[in-house]
Amino acid sequence: MRDDVLKLDGLSAGYGKVLVLRDISFRVSEGSVVGIIGPNGHGKTTLLNTICGFVSASSGTIELDGGHLTGLAPHQVAARGVVHIPQGDLIFPDLSIYENLLMGAYLEPDGAVQARRLASVFAMFPKLEERQAQMASTLSGGERRMLGIGRGLMRESRIMLIDEPSLGLAPIVVEQIYDTLKELKSQGRTIVLVEENPSRVVDFADEIFLIDNGEIVWSGQASEMEENENILETYLGG
């Protein structure tokens, strides 16, 4: 049995009085990829934001490597080794690409380690190296996504939370992004991947959770999902 990196237990959360997530429980074991799918507006982003501390849990617990994340501020969660690559990238528009990447290594002040990671990010995304002096606001959508992922790789992580990496990109760019994700998976990283569109997640994830209206309505191996065509039809409209 591999150790659990992330453990959610009975987690409920929302905005103000509106509860968006209800009683969510799941575990993510070391080195596995978990896919979370569900229709638009049903709480996937809220789930990741709750893990990261942007949304506070109204009940339930979040544990990382056995330690509590519940109630921590976002920067404290980040310091525990959670890397979140958010929906819509959230890059720093008026910092250069190089500076954006350096910000990713804020918690890693050692210059030598920074340089090594920078080199490996540049090896993965040569385009970023070419344009490192440019302002991030000048990048195209696909390049921004690459920068977002690259920035997330600039420091040590226990788990990566990736929110809709294919959102708004041309199919060919999505292909590139998923090639990168597959490389990350092959490095043995623990990943939680959120997507609205299940087709790619099914190929990619080890285990899948289907969220509908803030609740986990189905979970299982990716392979089982393909057999249960009717699940897709019921919840995602086929």
């Binding site: 976002p74 920067h75 980040a78 959230l90 990713g104 918690l107 420091r155």
Partner: peptide, 12 residues
Amino acid sequence: QSQKAAALMGIP
């Protein structure tokens, strides 16, 4: 530029 993104980087 983005307080949320900064927090994600671990900046208090």
